[in-house]
Design a binder for these strands. Structure first.
Lengths: 116, 116
DNA sequence: CAGATGAATCAGTTGACGCGTATATACGCC
DNA sequence: GGCGTATATACGCGTCAACTGATTCATCTG
């Protein structure tokens, strides 16, 4: 299983999203995915562990899971090859819209904010 | 099938990579994936079509396939939530390495280059 | 119109993945 | 040591996606 397949699963993306906020014990992750059973979540966590997207740290009988986002760089690099395509495309669209609607505050924000 | 699943398949990423260079007729794509049969490629193209990652244009009996990269924005947006994590992480790593090895030319290149 | 070529689809099989139930292991407390 | 909680693993099942091979559809050419 590679990183691309790992994040293709919506439940696993949900787990990563939860871990992006803060690290959490496994049980808390289970509680946040009410449609899945505990073993199901455990298996997803195992896969995320195997591809290096999360780390585990024991805390007594709990296991604290934490995000390791740098494994996502592989996807980001691949995506990088295409970024200019939609950037060009959107630039053209923006100019077109700006021209039509007169440069209002504009929802391209959905894509933009690389920078925080 | 969503965009994440669509690009999770290595052959489909290979097809997108070929189409990133330029649009191509289906036969040329088949020729460039020697491990797959013509029907297999056709099915992958159908999936890419269904999720909107490619467009088809008939040219006589040929079908010209072209990239529609803007559907990848969905992945880019999702990834955006994590970008700051590995940026911070790598910044720290870079500083650490730069400090230790004295700012040589350095194999962090695996990540850096956004290259186009 | 007949034949050839490019491409998509149909039919059938197989294998991988995700699920839930049941069970095992690890730790914490009494 | 025994029990309860927290997490992981084992097993069996259903589903879906990917492959192969055969076929069909469309278009071009003689």
């Amino acid at each position: 299983m590679d990183v691309f397949e790992a994040v293709a699963e919506p439940h696993r993306r949900a787990l990563l999203d939860l871990l992006a906020e803060r690290e959490r014990p496994a049980g808390e992750l289970v509680a946040n995915l009410p449609t899945l059973t505990q073993p199901a979540v455990s298996r997803h966590l195992r896969i995320l562990r195997e591809v290096g997207l999360v780390e585990v740290r024991p805390d007594g009988q709990r296991r604290i899971y934490a995000l390791r986002a740098d494994r996502l760089i592989e996807i980001d690099n691949w995506l990088g090859r295409y970024r200019r395509y939609w950037r060009d495309h959107l630039d053209a669209l923006e100019r077109h819209l700006a021209d039509r609607i007169g440069m209002q505050d504009d929802p391209t924000t959905q894509n933009g904010p690389d920078d925080d």
